[in-house]
């Protein structure tokens, strides 16, 4: 089997022993069975077991292994090793804008706090019927492109507005989730949800930079969803 050597520069920081972060130069041999960046990371960990990163499903649905890869956020398990130019080290850093716990592992508290702040659950105060609530296929289609979010945080941590105001701006992932419930015909809390976002920061810090769309590993479009929420705000104001 043909093998090749990949060079890496990896952000390292262990608060237990490092006074400050440093970049580690390290290389690893991969073969034809190693298709994705995550495959290489697992091999790297066999070389240096202290390299720390999150991973789970390795197929792009759990959202654990979001990293900053050569300057752009993405999932290690969906990044092809063949996409890296030869002869240049692959630079891996933790997601930007969140505190680092260790190496490539960030503290996602702020990200989830914003997600929780939009009340990400169906609100319907009618007594539940005996069978399913009916929803036409067309109404259900309104949720496509919204419900598939895997909460990997690639989008929010590539958003300059989120970097500056992670405590006040909900961020693209949270706003996508907000619109997912607004768009659901079974949800009865649209006006409450809009009230919750009517604020100079929570929604309106989105300046349509569209980094979120650029990096989403699931091909979702938070900017579009944010635009729809903004349009609803305008509509109800007049």
């Amino acid at each position: 089997m043909t093998t090749r050597t990949l060079q890496f520069k990896i952000y390292r920081y262990d608060p237990d022993k490092d006074r400050k972060p440093w970049m580690q130069d390290i290389s690893v041999e991969v073969d034809g069975t190693d298709r994705k960046l995550l495959d290489a990371l697992v091999k790297l960990k066999a070389v240096d077991d202290a390299i720390s990163f999150r991973r789970s499903c390795r197929e792009g649905v759990c959202g654990s292994d979001a990293l900053n890869i050569n300057g752009k956020n993405g999932l290690a398990c969906l990044t092809d090793l063949s996409s890296f130019p030869e002869g240049k080290p692959i630079v891996l850093r933790p997601l930007p804008g969140l505190p680092v716990i260790r190496d490539l592992i960030v503290d996602m508290t702020q990200f989830f706090k914003q997600y929780h702040s939009i009340k990400p659950y169906l609100i319907n105060n009618d007594p539940p019927p005996e069978r399913e609530r009916l929803q036409s296929p067309e109404d259900r289609e309104e949720l496509d492109g919204l419900y598939e979010c895997i909460l990997c945080a690639c989008c929010s941590t590539s958003c300059p507005s989120f970097w500056w105001n992670p405590d006040k701006f909900v961020g693209p992932a949270g706003l996508l989730a907000a619109y997912r419930f607004i768009a659901d015909t079974r949800d009865q809390a649209t006006s409450e949800r809009l009230d919750n976002l009517e604020d100079p920061y929570r929604l309106f810090r989105c300046h349509t930079i569209m980094n979120c769309v650029d990096v989403c590993p699931k091909g979702l479009n938070p900017t579009l969803a944010i635009g729809k929420i903004k349009a609803m705000m305008v509509k109800r104001a007049i």
């Binding site: 659950y121 399913e132 296929p137 259900r140 419930f181």
Partner: peptide, 11 residues
Amino acid sequence: EHYGMPFDRTD
């Protein structure tokens, strides 16, 4: 379904 799970739908 009542919790909000987005099942696909029949006509």
